[in-house]
């Protein structure tokens, strides 16, 4: 003999909380009680209407503000899943400290752990392109300054290191990348050539000290601090840029 149908069962029926057997019992009970069935049907209709209207309102919200954070969150959660699946990889990457093995396992800046420190990051080319564009715009007085550096950096949630006072931030831009965005800031230096600082979020957690290189005629110094990679670009001497990078990452 089945349990009598009570108010809880009717509520749980509307809320879809019952197992199949109990649902059938409730439906049999409702078939013998048309007034009660009408009330339950009314509750079900109201539930469906709630779903429809809330979904309609929620779907109207613009997507552009969430695309970037959703992508960033998705990448981090994917990495969590990858790490979870490969505990041995986690242990190894922790042992290596600087993170070069993690870098090779999960897709970092270079392919060969032994020579990774000498390979410019994948986005050095984009940093140099952005650097050239910034210099062109800087030389054109008709182009107005962009938003404040902090505003730009906040809009893409990338921590920006502070340069010494002799460097004055002039303009900043968000640079769209294939995956995510980067921030680029143009600095004017007292008694020297302008330089740019390019910052991007990566999908690999690495601590990599500054390395210098030359890409398409622009001297770059790049380093990675955790999830974020930075590229200083300018026409200065390599050693000058390396010294500057060493100062600002402290």
């Amino acid at each position: 003999m089945t349990e009598p149908i009570c108010e809880f069962d009717l509520m749980a029926y509307v809320d879809d909380q019952l197992d199949a057997q109990r649902r059938i019992e409730v439906e049999e009970h409702l078939s013998r009680n048309p007034q009660l069935a009408a009330q339950v049907m009314d509750d079900l209709c109201r539930r469906d209407e709630l779903r429809l209207v809330l979904t309609e309102v929620a779907a109207e919200a613009p997507l552009d503000r969430v695309i970037l954070p959703v992508e960033r969150l998705g990448r981090r959660l994917s990495l969590r899943m990858a790490l979870h699946r490969s505990r041995r990889a986690i242990a190894a990457s922790v042992l290596i400290g600087a993170g070069w093995l993690a870098h090779a396992t999960f897709g970092g800046l270079g392919a060969d752990p032994a020579s990774a420190a000498h390979i410019p990051p994948a986005f050095a080319g984009e940093a140099v392109e952005a650097h050239r564009l910034a210099l062109v715009e800087d030389a054109d007085p008709s182009i107005k300054s962009g938003p404040k550096t902090a505003d730009i950096a906040n809009s893409v949630s990338i921590p920006m290191p502070h340069l010494p006072d002799r460097f004055a931030p002039v303009t900043s831009h968000v640079v769209p990348l294939t995956k995510g965005s980067a921030v680029q800031v143009l600095f004017h230096a007292k008694g020297g050539e302008p330089l740019t600082l390019f910052a991007a979020e990566t999908d690999s957690f690495i601590i990599a000290p500054p390395s210098a290189d030359e890409v398409n005629g622009v001297t770059v110094v790049y380093w990675q601090s955790g999830w974020y990679a930075y590229v200083l670009g300018g026409s200065r001497d390599r050693e000058d840029l390396l010294t500057l990078a060493g100062q600002i990452i402290r």
Binding site: T55, A58, A59, A61, V66, I67, V70, E71, L73, G74, R75, L77, S78, M81
Partner: peptide, 13 residues
């Protein structure tokens, strides 16, 4: 949307 999150955004909203 990122595949991990695409089904969660509407419920979150």
């Amino acid at each position: 949307m990122h595949p991990l999150l695409k089904d969660h955004m509407l419920p979150l909203r």
